[in-house]
Design a protein around this nucleic acid. Sequence first.
DNA 1: ATGATGGTAAACATTG
DNA 2: CCAATGTTTACCATCA
Length: 595
Amino acid sequence: MMVESASETIRTTPSNQNGVSSLSSQSDGGGGREGGSNGDTNGEISPVDLLHLQQQQALQAARQFLLQQASGLNSPGSNEVKQSPVQVPVSMAMMSPQMITPQQMQQILSPPQLQALLQQQQALMLQQQLGSKQLAFQQQLIQMQQLQQQHILNLQRQGLVPLQPTATMQSLQQVIILLSLSLSLSLSLSLSLSLSLSPHSHEEHAGSHPLYGHGECKWPGCEALCEDMGQFIKHLNNEHALDDRSTAQCRVQMQVVQQLEIQLAKESERLQAMMAHLHMRPSEPKPFNQPLNLASSGALLKRDSEAYPEGLPHPPTSAATPITPLRQGPSVISSSSLHSHSHSHTHGVGPIRRRNSDKYCTPIASELAQNCEFYKNADVRPPFTYASLIRHAILESPDRQLTLNEIYNWFTRKFAYFRRNTATWKNAVRHNLSLHKCFVRVENVKGAVWTVDEVEYQKRRPPKMTGSPTLVKNMISGLGFGSLNASYQAALAESSLSLLNSPSLLTPPSAASLNMLHVGHDDVSSTVEQVNSNGSCSPTLSPQQYSHPVHVKEEPTEVEEDSRPVSLLAGVTHSLPLPSDERDLEEDLPTEELE
DNA sequence: ATGATGGTAAACATTG
DNA sequence: CCAATGTTTACCATCA
């Protein structure tokens, strides 16, 4: 769909040095996904389903609205655009920079339209009498909106803003609205997951707030302790008011939700193929027309887990097919939107996280696992550097050592993305192994194996604690709202971190297929790594133990250790999100085994 | 503007 | 000779 056409053009360097071009365009196909809700028929409609349905309607309405506006006002060469009109997920529309830029949005959606959209959404939302959480959330949204308006009014009073909304303000409004949509979506998704997966969700008190539970604030990255609801509300208003940071965090959440949607679509597609293959059911083809909707998520997920408790064998890692991308091209954000801006190569990779073998290593392990699951199936370039990935692969191995070929295999096994363009990434892997001091080649009886010198690895990690997640970065770049400034990014990093810790998203009960969260952040990894190396986690990381390195590499840069994770928010400044660029957030990694 | 870091490409050497 | 494995250099992009 349009998204792609736009994003594809992006990188074309004269020399075309990277296979990049292939990166940005390869995976998407085009097609659009999303469709209606064909939830599977279960016979009964649970409140959750209902919620989904309504949520869906709201989204659908929003999508159409956006699309209408987009096609009407923004169709220069609009032929291609028409191919799959409605199927664009709203989030997609919001994300693809090329599709609807902030500026375009401003033109596309006039204040009245935005208002209409907002109201439409609110109306639908209000119909959902499905629980205090939802209601509480709505209140939250309304509150946000009110705050926003208040903010605008204040600015106007101060003469800072003309009465007529300026582009900036319009943009802000749009952001808020879109955030609202996404937030509601994400919330419901989280809720549905927790509801459908665990009968007794944690927060069940009637008067509870979606962002409050277990006596603490559930705002991404917060965890502030609050005695009671009143205190919490107070905290919420004080600490999480409408500002750059909160907005940025919302964006991240939005991205998370979007990714979940995508993953869901993929998983369902896979499920169907699996079922079809096993003759468990006639094949309802349709990967593409699959609704990306939340509506069926609960049921699907449930079914999935029930039908395949243990998870069927993974799709062959063979080169054959990247299950993920399937031909569905467009709607899927896959690589195109994720990397659109930051060229594939831009950074593709960030650090990774630690091994699974040591479970002791934190709760994050599970998150990593989730990430793994995602990348295993999604043809998305992992936001980790090759070095990080290699290190991870090696550390994940039983002996903490791998042959080159084993490393290759690990890459293809863990990442759908690396099932193609083998020449390119394999070369990169070799290049990294040789180049970085942290990788030590050890002669072995049968050939040589590669090990990791953890100390060296840690050394080379730049002190800049920023550590924002690469993926997040990519996601950010994919956002249509322009890029974020440093404070935003910091906020994003923070929130992404916390997101990974979000119970509702990260602790999917049983079904392995639920592992869909895959937001990567980078410093998490470094953070974790730090912890690990200092804690019980990695007592033995030095390659030396295995044998003697054959030779020593000279690595130019040696930074001091100190790559303290530090608060991701440090140095956050407040300013309106404006232009600028996306920065790199480093890396992180997914780990754990999934197989 | 500059240096650090990272990805890609490619030449070249070594080894089985 | 060939292919896999390593090493090294060059170039480009992004970010601080």
